[in-house]
């Protein structure tokens, strides 16, 4: 019996006359790599933004770790262990690679007044950079990184707080094949270490070999849920993607 880490209940968001997310309900079980797929404009990113507090839902409820999140706020959720990345990797280009990790690691009020990068910070960052093979770049301004490296850095940064659930918004979009493999390896490693993932992704081959279960959204609501094999055979999914 696996427990639900994230429960989305009748979440709705309208932009003017368009209902981007429509009475959307789904769950993410602990210990899974769940995929959220669907055609363009099906409401995946909007759902992500509501879950992570970047967008206020018109109605519906979000429960994380058994607790109802009445007013989802990004910083608050992040400290509770729910973190995310963005479709266009968002890092802090003026900071060094190391500082990007340090700032995301979280710090107490006391540490806020302490050193910018302490020895302990440096050790923690070094460990993560080692895992992501970015050690050599630790002291570079992160503006110098390639797009793929930025995606890796953003991913590494949100892991610094030891999250329980990570939402990845198109982790491999616009990234070269070598980097896609690297990203997949990192997701698997972290998954093995106990992190749960919810991933929006357009690379279907990756989704099919990495994720289980898969949730398919269309017009802002789930139309299918199940293992990759089931999803691939589902006629509603084919219709949604290809048109009937």
């Amino acid at each position: 019996m696996s427990e639900n880490l994230l429960e989305i209940d009748h979440l709705t968001k309208r932009f003017g006359g368009v209902t981007a997310v429509d009475e959307c309900s789904f769950t993410v079980q602990k210990g899974t790599i769940t995929a959220l797929i669907g055609p363009n404009g099906s409401g995946k990113t909007t759902a992500f933004n509501m879950i992570t507090g970047y967008l206020k839902a018109d109605s519906g409820e979000i429960r994380f770790n058994g607790e109802t999140i009445a007013r989802p706020r990004p910083a608050d959720l992040y400290r509770r262990g729910l973190s995310r990345t963005f479709q266009q990797a968002r890092i802090f280009p003026e900071l060094t690679v190391e500082e990007n990790l340090v700032v995301a690691a979280g710090y107490s009020w006391r540490q806020l007044f302490g050193r910018r990068v302490s020895e302990i910070d440096r050790e923690r960052a070094k460990k993560m950079l080692g895992e992501f093979r970015l050690e050599a770049m630790a002291q570079l301004p992160s503006a110098d990184l390639s797009y793929g490296q930025r995606k890796l850095l953003e991913f590494a940064a949100v892991l610094m707080s030891d999250p329980t659930l990570v939402l990845l918004d198109e982790p491999t979009a616009g990234v070269n094949p070598v980097m896609i493999d690297a990203m997949e390896q990192h997701i698997r490693q972290r998954h093995a270490a106990g992190v749960t993932f919810l991933i929006v992704e357009h690379d279907m081959q990756l989704v099919m070999r990495l994720c289980d279960p898969v949730i398919v959204l269309d017009h802002g609501a789930p139309i299918a849920f199940g293992s990759p094999d089931l999803i691939q055979k589902d006629t509603r999914v084919l219709e949604a993607y290809l048109g009937s």
Binding site: Y54, Y78, S83, I91, F92, V103, L112, G114, V117
Partner: peptide, 21 residues
Amino acid sequence: SKIGLSLATVRADEDKAHGVG
């Protein structure tokens, strides 16, 4: 100090800064 580090994230991308706590 981390005040300056935090302020730099605010200046660069305040929404993202919220998102990393």
